[in-house]
Simulated assay, not measured.
Amino acid sequence: MSNQYFSPCPRGLEALLVDELTRLGASDVEQVPGGVAFSGDWPLCWRVNLESRIATRVLWRVGQTRYRSEEEIYKLAYATTWAKWFTPDETIRIYLTAIRSPLKSLNFATLRIKDGLCDHFRTVTGKRPSVDTEAPDVRVQAFITADTCTLYIDTSGEPLYKRGFKRAKVEAPLKENLAAGILKLSGWQPDEPLLDPMCGSGSFLIEAAQIALDIAPGSGRSFGFEKLKSCDAAEWQRLRGKVLQRRQPNRQLEIFGSDIDPRQVAASESNLAAAGLAGLVQLMDADVLDLEAPAPEGVWVTNPPYGVRLSTGEELAEWYPKLGDALKRRFAGWRAYFLTADLDIAKRIGLKASKRTPLFNSDLECRLFEYKLVAGQNRD
C-alpha cells in the first residue's frame, strides 16, 4: 500500500532531499519550500528514517479537509481512524503549524484536534490516551493553511538530526542534517582531505566520517514508527540489519578538526567516541590563523563562531582579513566553505566568493560562501 509522506528539511536543502528520496525509491516526489512530499510503502518510510542525512522528519499524512471553523477540524480529527494505528495506552502530543490561518486561536485549534482524537478512542475502545508533552509515544502534526487542515503522524519521533549519540554540547551548535547538506553542496568526496578548523562539537567531522564509512545516520537511535501497529517488527529488523551491514571497518580517515579552544576539541573528541569513531579523525588544538594545510588539496568547511568567541565588531573586522591572508598563503589548491549569518564576511575576508548559497540554520538566514583558493600574491 502506498502512503503519502512529507519530510521537512533545512531551507535551502530541498533539492538535495529530492535526490536522496529518489535514490531511496520514493515516488511522486514534489519539492516545496521547506521540504519534500513523496509517496511510498512502509519499508520506504523506514529506510528514509534510517538513511536520510537531510530530512528533519518523516510525516505520514492520515487526514485532510477543508475548513471554516474549529468544528470542521474537530470532525476531521474524530473521523481519522487513529485506533487502527496505535492504542490508547500510547501517550500523545499534538503539534500545530499554521500559514495564513483565519482562526483566532491556534491553541484552541490544537485543543480541538486533541479532543477529536481522544473522543475517537473513547468511542472505539472505551478508553482515551494520555497527553505527554515531554516524551510522547505518538506525535501528531497538524498543518493549517487559509482553508485546509492536514493531519500527520510523525514516524520519526525525535527529529532525525538527533542521531542518538551526541554527549558534549557547545554554544550555537550546527544541526547534523544541515552539516550533511553542506558537505554535499561542497562536492566533498570521501577520498578527499577535509578540514574543519573551528570544529566546535564536531558536526562536520562526524557527518563526514559516517559518510566515508557508509554508516546510516539513524543507526544509533529508535523511531516513532516502531510504536505503530503498522510496523512489522521482524521485517523492520531485517531491513535495518541489511543497511547496517554496509558499514565499512574503522580506518584512519583524511578528516581533520581543530579549534583554538581546547574545550571545543574535547567536545568533538567526546562526540566522535560516542558515535563509535574514536581515533578515526585527527584533532588538534590550534588557532585557525596558524594552521598549515594537511594536504596539497582538499575541502575546508566551517561555521565560524562569529559573535560568540569574537565579541566585538572591531575584533571581527580585524580577524576576517587575517583569515583571508592565512587561507591564501597556506591553503592554495583547496576549496573553502563558510556557513555564516555575518553577510559582511564577503567584504571583510578579501577573497572573491565563487558561489553564495542561501541556507537557514533553524530560523537564522545564512549564506554558504565558496572560495576556490589559488596561489598568488598576498594582499597588501
Rank of each mutant, 00 (worst) to 15 (best):
H120W: 09
S69C: 02
Y306F: 15
V281W: 06
R356V: 11
A180K: 01
K127Y: 00
N177G: 08
A233P: 00
A332W: 05
S354T: 14
G187D: 13
E297N: 13
R167H: 13
L183W: 01
P10S: 14
T155H: 11
V281L: 13
Q245F: 09
P43C: 07
K328Q: 15
V36T: 13
V281H: 05
L160F: 04
P190S: 07
R139M: 08
F143T: 10
Y74T: 02
T87S: 15
W300G: 01
Y306R: 04
L195N: 02
T312I: 08
K114M: 11
V170W: 01
E207A: 05
Q282I: 05
Q141F: 12
L59C: 11
T110D: 00
A234S: 10
F6A: 06
S130P: 00
S7L: 07
F256P: 02
P33W: 03
L310Q: 11
M198A: 11
A332G: 14
H120M: 07
Y306W: 14
V374P: 00
Q237T: 10
K229D: 10
L16S: 14
W188E: 04
D232E: 14
L76D: 06
F331E: 01
V36P: 07
F360L: 15
A278P: 04
S354W: 10
L205N: 03
Y74N: 03
G307I: 08
G279M: 09
G12H: 05
D28H: 12
G126C: 01
V138F: 01
V62G: 05
L359Y: 08
L316Y: 00
G298T: 09
P136H: 04
S156W: 05
S268Y: 07
D214T: 12
I153Q: 01
Y67S: 08
L339Q: 05
D89P: 00
